[in-house]
Design a protein around this nucleic acid. Structure first.
Lengths: 343, 343
DNA sequence: GAAAATAGTTATCGCGCGTAAAATTTAATT
DNA sequence: AATTAAATTTTACGCGCGATAACTATTTTC
């Protein structure tokens, strides 16, 4: 194989004995040609290895088969994991994913949407910052390109949203914590940009009320994405000050919990549900590292795979139907309790 | 601003009063036109918001301004971090980075190179798997596209390599460990795919000899990228079996160390250099999470920024000179000792 | 086996822009 | 003001492929 260099479809038509328009049809949809000619094309293809020029193809096609995937921060293993799932779903459906990270900066999110616009994507899967996002920019973008958001919801914007049911999952862990020990107080950042954080707080309040306990929320200052640092510094401060009302702390997310666990260790405070333990710490998200904390973190697992696949399939449905959804869809998946040693 | 919709450069030429070829020159290099016309163009640009069609541009340009960035696994924070640095360097130089992860699978690395080929990138920054990489595929790719590898070297392949000086950095930490306590034994995977692992082992042997101690290496089975898991399972097994000759263990990388630390915690083995500690554990890489382990991990920090920037600037130099390097360049940066509580 | 349906062919246009050559304008120099 | 160099405009072509129309070949249907 690999004889002469094929420069374009014309040349490939010559060597394969198939006319160029038929080849064009084949490359657009292999099943649109007769079985016998398809086999002839693929035989020639294995001999001459030719691939249509992406730029020429995308210039002329009405819409590309590119799917933009935008996540707020690839440095967060949660997003690199879910980003990977989304990429795989796109590839499986015959689309070309283009993964962009906003590096923790809302301004970059907007820049990413601008870059994507130039690539004329068939659709975009966006995990937005939430409140920190430029809502106007996203709205404008959604007018031009079908968008499905995941992880974080921006109320009323885009075709659909797929995420986790924070109320269900918080109830799950609050119930467990109340049943197995002292009711939890809640630890979070004062100004969380992620809308899930607000839902989780609300869900915590409701769950505690439902179980007949008085909720206690501790909000700490801190900015940016260095959650472990904030969890360690502020969590450690609260622990050593004896500020928590009960011996059980439910953190708004795993990364805060990871930081707090490290602070507890430094302070010599033994964490867990064992006899010699003096406090329990739980998180939310089932961060990839949470099983290697000391002690391993009890948390709520989000169904990464389900979220990614549903978001992707919803987008493909919109793209392929060529009509926008008449009604905005919101899908949330249940979280699962992951019991480890920390609570 | 934003009156009528400009569909192409022709229309923009009409409304701006500048000829299309001049506009074309401007978009290729804003400084290639006279200052006064540049200002006229930019004035019109702010009124009509027009951007050249990427696909049409790339189809006709001899070479694109795309830079492929391929890392072995974005789920590893080390690579997401260095990937980010590389992306920023590309953007700063006016190139368009395209970030691809091989998801821990060498076959995907090859697939990524194939996808990149279709995008006709001006160059590629590749962090290869190393021995697990398809050397032939990389070599063939390098014939068509200028490539600079980073992090992991593939001897003799590609234009240049940029990484960390494993011999320097291992010496640094071995010297520290020997000076401050018992000499370290070495913990690693039996079949590391990363070439750095082999260099680190070699460097450990040499450093120990230099300091007059007998080296001891522990190689454990395990496959894939779940290093923490391997570190926890196998490291824990060795700890509880009392298999380590000295109380100090130098792990081949931080992720193994993170796993081993969690195993030590489970076993109630106190790690650190304090009085009540029974063993010391050190790592290499300064993984983003290593400061939140229990205790925080003593390690060797790689200079992510320097590596990323040097790799990028080397590639740009090759691209812009339009000639391949006469001699393959290898650049390594020194690691820095990061002293924390674990050793 | 002829008509109908399907698939393939030839021919031709257009997409939006890079690029080259020649003609023209503008700016810099003497 | 005349000469020269530099920048811009005009004109024209080409990139590789999508799309379509009109025609021909092949396959299906009864």
């Amino acid at each position: 194989m690999g004889q002469q260099k094929i420069r374009n479809m014309e040349e490939f038509a010559a060597v394969s004995g198939i006319s160029r328009p038929t080849l064009s049809k084949y490359f657009n949809d292999a099943d649109s040609v007769r079985r016998s000619t398809r086999e002839r094309i693929e035989a020639a293809l294995s001999q001459y290895d030719y691939r249509p020029n992406v730029y020429a193809v995308n210039q002329n096609r009405r819409k590309t088969r590119n799917i933009g995937v935008v996540v707020p921060n690839l440095a967060d293993p949660f997003f690199s994991e879910i980003g990977r799932e989304v990429e795989l779903a796109c590839l499986a459906a015959g689309y070309s994913p283009i993964l962009l990270s906003s590096h923790g900066k809302p301004a970059q999110e907007r820049a990413n949407l601008d870059s994507l616009r130039a690539l004329k994507p068939a659709g975009v899967l966006l995990a937005p910052f939430g409140k920190a996002s430029d809502r106007g920019a996203i709205e404008r973008f959604c007018k031009d390109v079908p968008v499905v958001t995941f992880d974080a919801n921006v109320e009323g914007v885009c075709e659909a949203f797929v995420g986790t049911d924070n109320f269900q999952s918080v109830e799950l862990i609050v119930e467990y914590l109340c049943r197995s020990g002292e009711p939890p107080c809640f630890f979070e950042m004062k100004t969380p940009s992620n809308p899930n954080a607000n839902k989780r707080r609300q869900a915590y309040l409701e769950a505690m009320e439902r179980h007949g306990f008085a909720p206690k929320i501790h909000q700490v200052p801190g900015e940016g994405w260095n959650f472990e640092e904030i969890g360690a510094t502020e969590g450690g401060r609260l622990i050593s000050a004896g500020a928590f009302e009960t011996d059980t702390v439910l953190c708004s997310n795993d990364r805060l919990a990871i930081g707090m666990l490290s602070a507890a260790y430094e302070l010599g405070v033994r964490v867990g549900h064992g006899k010699d333990c003096v406090m329990r710490i739980a998180g939310q998200d089932d961060h990839p590292f949470s099983r290697y904390t000391c002690p391993p973190l009890t948390t709520i697992a989000q169904d990464y795979g389900a979220i990614a696949n549903r978001a992707a399939s919803t987008l493909f449905r919109i793209i392929e139907s060529e009509t926008r959804l008449t009604e905005r869809e919101e899908t949330v998946f249940d979280g699962k309790l992951v019991m480890r040693a920390s609570a």
